[in-house]
Design a protein around this nucleic acid. Structure first.
Lengths: 242, 242
DNA sequence: TGATTCATAATGTATATACAACATATGTGC
DNA sequence: GCACATATGTTGTATATACATTATGAATCA
């Protein structure tokens, strides 16, 4: 492994383990150069690449710091429903309908990478925007990675927020489809007449494995998913902010 | 502007203008160093950043080349429907239902950034997978940027493929929702009984403006949208492939 | 106390150099 | 013609150095 990669590895572990939290200062180029017995340019490269990858932020004259976790997913973010509602200046509240431990049926066990019939957390939460139901969140959580999931108050923070805090999320996969809601969903969403629903299945990973699988169902008339992406370079150099 | 940025700019223009097509060789580090009267390390930085941004690919011993346009959108790609079907080893064919020029109604004129009532291309194409209708593609195209849109044979190449060739796409935005198909859509999709449909509205940009707006409608029972994203660093260094 | 100046430290840009690793074409021997 | 060695060009890594630009805190002065 190249020297600059060793240095990256070293810093990466500090961040991943939580030893260096958000905004914690990272050793300077010169400090790393001395510590690892390399030239400043080599230490610099390690920090520069970590900066490119979004793990640290660098400001000239000041130093290098662990980047805030927020700015994670730049592109088609399936955002926290609560945030989304609040940025629309609307009221959000959530009702926890189910919170239990259930044995994992085979498909679920595969999805979460846990033994079949082992207990997993299961929650059903309905999210309201200005009093109208806009999302049913049906979620299964790996208890090995998040043992205290069942003892949180999800009318305050959303499960997504809690999981982001407890486990540093590294990956997510989504499947989106249009479905006809069954009776249970129609009831939870308080739909008078059944209407097409947008259903998002999301699985999230942290470094240690699959954290959670969620099925988010939105009534088609009250929800739209948006995303923006840029394909090619914006011709900006690394340093520039925007 | 920094020297390495001048070099980036120079190469960027060659690519953007089409003067250097896909796989065209890019001047070597030493050649650029001589041409721009800078050190090799500075020329190197320009090429390195262009590589990071995905505009060029570099291979040791061989050289630097303009990157193929394909590998553009790494994340939640709403792929070319034809490709998607073919990678499932299924048959794809398309039927052009409508190909016309229509005056832009106000909302459309805004979306495409063209004058109200000016003529724009409008096409309606149905895509089939193994003989079953799986997508209605309702598309409006900016004729200023793609004057010959109406004279293509879209049973061979999809509009998306054609547009990618003609205009180097730089951005796209998507809106996804679940809808109840109207009679026209139900008819085009050959739905016996109306079912929830996944509707994707996509707008694409090239450097010179909005190229096209498409509304893609899929029957919920026959389509699912998948995506994967990684949030934080994968701890890989720049050079590594995967 | 408050404002200004100054020193220090950190990152940003640029250069010159050395060697390593790899790809490709060329030539050599058989 | 074919296999092998060689030369050359290209990218990758690493070092040492110089100076510019910016942030921050300490020292100085009014």
């Amino acid at each position: 492994m190249a020297k600059f990669e060793h240095i990256k590895e070293h810093i990466y572990k500090k961040i991943e383990s939580g030893e260096w939290p958000e905004y914690h200062p990272v050793s300077s180029e010169n400090a790393l150069a001395n510590q690892f017995k390399v030239s400043r340019m080599t230490a610099r490269r390690a920090l520069q690449e970590l900066s490119d990858e979004g793990l640290v932020t660098r400001t000239r004259g000041s130093g290098t710091f662990v980047a805030p976790l927020k700015s994670q997913s730049a592109l088609l973010t399936i955002r926290n429903i609560a945030d989304e509602i609040r940025t629309r200046q609307h009221r959000h509240h959530a009702v926890v309908k189910v919170m239990e431990q259930v044995p994992a049926y085979p498909a679920l066990a595969t999805a979460l990478h846990v033994p079949v019939e082992s207990l997993v957390w299961h929650s059903v939460i309905v999210h309201f925007e200005n009093g109208q139901a806009v999302q049913v969140e049906d979620r299964f959580v790996n208890p090995r990675l998040v043992p205290n999931y069942g003892h949180q108050d999800f009318s305050v923070h959303t499960p997504h927020e809690y999981l982001c805090e407890v486990t540093p999320l590294t990956e997510a996969s989504h499947q989106i489809e249009a479905v006809h809601p069954d009776d249970r969903l129609a009831d939870l969403l308080e739909l008078e007449t059944p209407e097409p629903c947008l259903q998002i299945q999301r699985r999230t990973w942290c470094r240690d494995g699959v954290v959670s699988q969620a099925i988010l169902t939105h009534p088609g008339s009250k929800f739209r998913l948006g995303g923006h992406m840029t394909f090619r370079s914006t011709r900006k150099s690394k340093g520039e902010k925007s």
